[in-house]
Amino acid sequence: MRKEILKVDHLKKYFPIKSGIWNRTVTNIKAVDNISFTVHEGETVGIVGESGCGKSTVARTILQLEQPTAGNIYFEGKNLCLLRKKELRRKRKEMQMIFQHPHSSLNPRQRLKDILYEAMSIQKVVPKARKNEQVHALLQKVGLQPHQQERYPHELSGGEKQRVAIARALAVQPKLIICDEIVSSLDISRQAQILHLLKKLQQDFNLTYLFISHDLEVVRYISDRVIVMYVGQIVEMATTQSLFESPMHPYTHALLSAIPTPHPKAKRKRLLLKGEVPSPVEPPSGCRFHPRCPFATETCKKVAPTLQGTKDVEQNHLVACHYGEDIARNRSSFF
């Protein structure tokens, strides 16, 4: 078993909705509601889910951009939520984030070399004398030309900007990089290039990725393990192979059947969901998926399922469904 690098323990993040003249908290948006998972060194964990299911909030809370409402986050055994501001700033060197929008994730007034050099100087990772050398090395690592260091972000394409954002994250020599929808604003050929680059960098620097996306194919390509989220909770967590080959949660089934097939005449059964994603302000009782689930029973309405392992399938395959095993066993008859 590899070393645990990140442990998220019963994390909750509620955003208060305030109203009235006293600004009293009326209710909460339960963006992330009680989730736990671990990430091991050197692996890539993908998080998938619809927009609004709390994927990005998980990322932002892990990096302490948002204070968690409850729960703890351990990075290499250290509880990040208890660190003081100064200690946390030093600790930030170890974990970096790459953002969704390449256009707004770079300061438009800084040249590429200034962007990279600033990252290095904040964490003091490279002596001043070697900064130029290091900037060149970083640009080359992410597939840019050294002469582009004089450019401003607006002189680059979206893919190139995303490469700069990757270089900036690498500049402080982190162990964990959280990628929040980093390819979703790029066209398909650029996506492939960036994903290749990430894989290569992972080998070169022994990086660990937490890869957030709504694109299942992208997650399948890059991840070792996948977490499926629905309305602030984890519904299924398994190795990529196990999840894509024998999904257990009906929601995962629905997601997988929504992947477009490249063959125009291929016929397949699809599990189409009815209704809308419920509001995270007042999530449904019991299992949060029950109003849309084709297999829901009375139990599902009352009792919330816990995320647990199953006997039949692989050990690490966890699912939060009362009938996960039955559904997986009788898969062929349903789909």
Binding site: R90, H101, L106, V172
Partner: peptide, 20 residues
């Protein structure tokens, strides 16, 4: 904008973020 978050994640001080 995300570059402000990016600077926070890098561990930049508030003064640096505000003035730079």
């Amino acid at each position: 904008l995300e570059y402000i978050d990016a600077m926070k994640v890098l561990g930049a001080s508030d003064i640096r973020i505000i003035f730079k």
